[in-house]
């Protein structure tokens, strides 16, 4: 922002004014986004980092601890158990969502009349809040009034109602089903958009060369969907690692605390035990883990295919 010396010739000077104008205009355009990010993300993040260095009770004065909260974490068995459980859950739910979303995207990727109706049907659960959908599933799965047990009984598949949430594996299973139902539409839409961005000529050329459907799928569509996969995968993994609502509502972390996710444990420390500082430290660690995971996934799926 230094002023331009008068000695300099006219043309470059004009260019420089133009540049400056442009940069100011650019600055103004990004200003709202920058302010928003500062207020809603950077500041809270710094605040969280600051809190994580304290013993920060809900009521009363905070005391500085340095890195003691982080040291504490190493001995916190439940935190590591929760992290491992969250990883298991992510490893199970992500492929389930992906395979189904890919199949659905293939199915609805046609120009048939009325296909919009099906796309809408698959997408509708996405717009339901996760809290609401979890409660919905709690009642669907209820042993006395739930429709799922009712159906299974009527079909003669079971003799007495199944109490889903008293067994870790059953509980995890039905939660995965409910989450897949809830989120598969979103991944489907992402993949569908990726599929539709692939020019038709490529398929036509391949057909001329005698490529069959499977070959077109594996040699044209899949490689060209790489960046879409990367996006959908990163979103899905982050979403799974941050899962909380469905477990809080459906299992309450039970049976015997076997379904406590990482965020659930952060919530418990912050809002049940009122150890806000420790909760903040756990959040920072989870943030670092997720950041690293996302970078890793984007590296692996880096898009170097062009057409």
């Amino acid at each position: 922002m230094t002023t331009v010396p008068a000695a300099i010739a006219k043309p470059p000077r004009r260019r420089s004014t133009l540049n400056r104008q442009r940069s100011i205009a650019g600055f103004l355009f990004v200003l709202p986004a920058v302010l928003f990010t500062l207020a809603m993300f950077i500041f809270p993040l710094l605040m969280t980092a600051w809190m994580s260095l304290h013993d920060w009770p809900l009521l009363g004065q905070a005391t500085f601890l340095g890195i003691q909260n982080y040291v504490e974490m190493a001995r916190d068995k439940q935190f590591w158990a929760s992290l491992w459980f969250t990883t298991q859950y992510t490893l199970l739910v992500t492929p389930a969502i992906f395979i189904l979303a890919f199949a659905l995207a293939l199915l609805v990727n046609t120009a048939l009349r009325g296909i919009g109706v099906f796309r809408t049907i698959y997408f509708i659960p996405v717009v339901i809040g996760l809290g609401a959908s979890s409660l919905l599933w709690v009642w669907l799965l209820n042993d006395r009034v739930g429709i799922i047990n009712g159906l299974l009984l009527d079909l003669g598949l079971i003799e007495r109602p199944i109490i889903w949430f008293v067994d870790k594996n059953l509980a995890l299973g039905v939660i995965i089903v409910s989450v897949v139902w809830k989120t598969v539409g979103f991944s489907m839409i992402l993949l569908l958009a990726g599929m539709q961005a692939i020019p038709d000529e490529l398929y036509q050329a391949a057909m001329v060369d005698g490529a069959n459907y499977r070959q077109r799928l594996t040699h044209i569509m899949m490689p060209l969907l790489r960046s879409t996969f990367a996006l959908a995968l990163v979103l899905s993994v982050i979403g799974s690692y941050l899962s909380f609502d469905q477990f809080y509502i459906m299992t309450r972390g039970g049976p015997q605390n076997q379904t406590i996710t990482a965020v659930y444990w952060i919530f418990n420390n912050s809002f049940t035990y009122y150890k806000m500082g420790y909760g903040a430290a756990l959040s920072i660690i989870l943030l670092i883990i997720l950041g690293a995971l996302s970078i890793l996934q984007l590296r692996i799926l880096r898009d170097d295919v062009t057409y």
Partner: peptide, 9 residues
Amino acid sequence: IPPGAQADT
């Protein structure tokens, strides 16, 4: 006690 009681939050 009904079996469902075990899972009732």
